[in-house]
C-alpha cells in the first residue's frame, strides 16, 4: 500500500446528536419568571432558618425542605459581592468588551445573583459598591432576567464588608 493510500483511510467519523425538547421551568422558576415580567423580583424564604433564596427555588438546598410559603418581594438594589472583567465577547451578553460580570447580593436576599455591571468605569469597579438595576423599557419586559440590562452604580457609601463577606 502506498503512503498516500494509507493516509486515505477514515479515522474519524462525525456522529452529531440533535434532539428537540420542550424544557419545563417548574413551579418556582415559573413564579419567578412570571413576576419579573411584571417588574417584580421574587425570592422565597426557607422555613427552617428564614434565609431568603433569590431567585426562588422549590426547596432549600441546604436543609432539603420544600419551600411552599408566600414569596418575598425584593428591591432592585444591592451590593456588589465580586466581579470579573471579561475581554472575550459572549453571544449572550449585550455589552461591548471589555464588560464586567458581577455577583450581586440584593438587599433582603441571602443568595447572590449573577449579572452584569454597566455605566461604570472599569477602574472604579470594586467589591462592596452599591448598585441599582437598569431595566429595559417596560413594553419589552418578558419572562427573563434579561429584563434587567445590567446593574449600575448607586450614589451611596459602600456596604460594610461584614454585610456580604459570607457570600465571597
Amino acid at each position: 500500500m502506498s503512503d498516500e493510500a494509507k493516509d486515505d483511510v477514515v479515522k474519524v467519523i462525525r456522529t452529531p446528536v440533535q434532539l428537540d425538547y420542550n424544557y419545563s421551568a417548574g413551579r418556582s422558576a415559573s413564579r419567578f419568571l412570571r413576576s419579573i415580567k411584571e417588574g417584580k423580583l421574587i425570592g422565597q424564604r426557607c422555613p427552617v432558618d428564614g434565609r431568603v433564596y433569590f431567585p426562588s427555588r422549590g426547596s432549600c438546598p441546604q436543609h432539603g425542605v420544600p419551600i411552599e410559603g408566600e414569596p418575598v418581594e425584593l428591591v432592585d438594589r444591592g451590593t456588589l459581592v465580586t466581579f470579573s472583567i471579561v475581554r472575550i465577547p459572549a453571544e449572550s451578553v449585550p455589552l461591548e468588551i471589555p464588560f464586567v460580570t458581577i455577583q450581586v447580593l440584593l438587599d433582603g436576599a441571602d443568595t447572590i445573583l449573577m449579572h452584569l455591571l454597566g455605566n461604570c468605569d472599569l477602574e472604579k469597579v470594586h467589591m462592596g459598591m452599591r448598585l441599582k438595576a437598569r431595566w429595559k423599557p417596560k413594553e419589552e419586559w418578558e419572562e427573563s432576567v434579561a429584563n434587567i440590562i445590567y446593574f449600575e452604580p448607586l450614589d451611596e457609601p459602600d456596604a460594610d464588608y461584614d454585610s456580604y463577606k459570607e457570600h465571597i
Partner: peptide, 23 residues
C-alpha cells in the same frame, strides 16, 4: 406544574418525614 427536581422534592420529603429521618 413541576420540573424534574420539584417532582422528587415531595417524594423524599414524604419518606424522611414518615421515618422521622434527619440528614
Amino acid at each position: 406544574n413541576l420540573n424534574d427536581t420539584e417532582i422528587v422534592i415531595p417524594v423524599i420529603h414524604e419518606l424522611k418525614k414518615g421515618k422521622n429521618l434527619k440528614n
